[in-house]
Nucleic acid binder design. Structure first.
Length: 484
RNA sequence: GCCCCCAUCGUCUAGCGGCCUAGGACACCGGCCUUUCAAGCCGGCGGCACGGAUUCGAAUUCCGUUGGGGGCACCA
């Protein structure tokens, strides 16, 4: 089994394309076949080397690696189409010689006009084959005169039946297929032809791509046959749609793999989500790459389009975060925090949020709420008024403890504080809520042990003092004090 | 306009003629847990697009309608 993913470096890696790459990858891994990366850069004007490396970086980031490709080489290279132009010219020459292809001198304006007329007349838009009947002599003469000419494939009569592994036989009416241009007038092969010549030369056995290629596949199947090669097996998966039901694109917001990386999603979550989008799985949904490989089958892919649902991606990301080893989670959390965040603080906050974090992109905001909290609003400061005794006690405890507390140490401190409060008959809420407000300026936030562990002793004491000052004055504090 | 593909809860899906009073997951709503918010746990709401046909029996097969998507380039 040999499959390929063939992006054109004219844009970044879209999640829809990433899904195609993933399905090819999973198929190769599941069957023990080979995954080939080929760069379809015959559109020389729009292709960009920087985009090409960005695409490869995104694929690797997702964990999709290839046995053969432009950077790793392989027996079927080169893996850039622009380095394979000679192959295409040779193949086109063969088709020309055998009468399966012909030169076309029609200027684009004429083709454009033809298209418009067909549309208005309610007919399928197809080339009228004006140049098919040109006498060989005339073709030679015009060529010799330097007139630009493209090469068209002469589509044979009759319907084309594609045997699709996902949707069964698909019949494309022959009269819907226009003679495709296989070599442009600038001498560079077009997509449909280069793809077929390469798939043949590279021994591709299964072509897995989006169903937007279905009509291309009809042409390409004919081309495979014309070139005398084996026709690969085809599988056309469905498209990814945006929330509004249209093809997912930039206008829906984040649609590139890189967007999601920057937003702080885990690659394994994206892979998991993309795999699930449009394929039938068992009751289990949180799956890592090994499971996906083990359970992937082309036949299980759904033929119907799937809407990209961000909340479900969020949930999967959350699941994969919880599955991470603590050290890795801490590392990922900490690297999102501002430079200079004290390591004990970063560790405590990471620990605080491993069970509830949705994506790492949220880390800075969550950390800031503890490390650089807002001043409590007047009504919360007022809530501290009756709590002077508690705040004084917890200040004493904190002052006696080390500069940095571990979450476990903080838990012990709080246990001591709570048993003190219990003896005085103070309820848990009256004990802990004033402390939370004094420390974070808010009623909501992570569990208190982590808050205490995230704050240096000096900072914690300063905040408690501030609360006590405001308390004594019966008013919100006027001096902000040390809030670092 | 022409051609192709698709059609089960809001979303992703299970279902491949009787096991379906249609199952699961996300989202949503409620409860529990809890110093708080989350998370977690438990429960609830919610769907076979419509019309014919085949059959003892249809979510499942066939036809049509409607709806959605895609393609119709000297882009890929």
């Amino acid at each position: 089994m040999r499959v390929r993913f063939a992006p054109s470096p004219t844009g970044t890696l879209h999640v829809g394309s990433a899904r195609t790459a993933l399905y090819n990858y999973l198929f190769a891994r599941h069957t023990g076949g080979r995954f080939v990366l080929r760069i379809d850069d015959t559109d020389t004007a729009r292709s960009d080397a920087a985009l090409e490396s960005a695409i490869m970086a995104d694929l690797r980031w997702l964990g999709l690696d290839w046995e053969e490709g432009p950077d790793v080489g392989g027996p079927s290279g080169p893996y850039h189409q622009k380095e394979r132009l000679k192959l295409y010219r040779g193949a086109a020459g063969e088709l020309l010689d055998s009468g399966l292809a012909y030169r076309c001198f029609c200027p684009e304006e004429r083709l454009e006009k033809l298209r418009r007329e067909a549309l208005v007349g309610g007919r399928p838009a197809r080339y009228d084959r004006r140049c098919l009947g040109l006498a060989p002599d005339e073709v030679r003469r015009r060529l010799a005169a330097g007139e630009p000419a493209a090469i068209r494939f002469k589509v044979p009569e009759g319907d084309v039946v594609i045997i699709d592994l996902i949707r069964g036989p698909v019949t494309i009416g022959g009269d819907a297929l226009s003679d495709p241009i296989i070599v442009r007038s600038d001498g560079v092969a077009g997509y449909n032809f280069a793809t077929v010549a390469d798939d043949l030369a590279m021994g591709i056995t299964h072509v897995i791509r989006g169903d937007d290629h279905l009509t291309n596949t009809a042409r390409q199947q004919l081309l495979f046959e014309a070139l005398g090669g084996p026709v690969p097996q085809f599988a056309h998966h469905s498209m990814v749609l945006g929330p509004d039901g249209g093809k997912l694109s930039k206008r829906h917001g984040a649609s590139a793999v890189g967007d999601y990386r920057e937003l702080g999603y885990l690659p394994q979550a994206i892979v998991n989500y993309l795999a699930l989008l449009g394929w039938s799985h068992g009751e289990e949904e949180v799956l890592g790459m090994p499971r996906l490989i083990a359970e992937f089958e082309l036949e299980k892919l759904s033929p119907s389009p799937a809407v990209f649902d961000l909340p479900k991606l969020d949930w999967l990301d959350h699941e994969h975060i919880m599955a991470l080893a603590l050290e890795e989670h801490e590392r990922r959390f900490a690297e999102r925090l501002p430079l200079g965040t004290p390591p004990p603080a970063a560790a405590a906050l990471a620990a605080a949020y491993q069970s509830s974090l949705v994506r790492y992109g949220a880390a800075p905001e969550l950390a800031a709420a503890v490390l650089e909290p807002p001043l409590p609003p007047p009504e919360l400061s007022a809530a501290l008024l009756p709590a002077a005794e508690q705040l004084t006690r917890v200040r004493e405890l904190r002052a006696e403890a080390p500069e940095w507390l571990t979450p476990a140490g903080a838990r012990e401190l709080l246990a001591a504080y709570r048993s003190w409060g219990k003896e005085l008959g103070i309820g848990a809420r009256d004990l802990l809520m004033p402390l939370r407000i004094a420390l974070t300026g808010a009623e909501h936030g992570p569990e208190l042990p982590f808050v205490l562990a995230a704050l240096h002793r000096g900072v914690a004491l300063a905040r408690l003092d501030l609360a006590l000052i405001g308390n004594r004055a019966g008013e919100p504090p006027t001096t902000p004090g040390d809030r670092s």
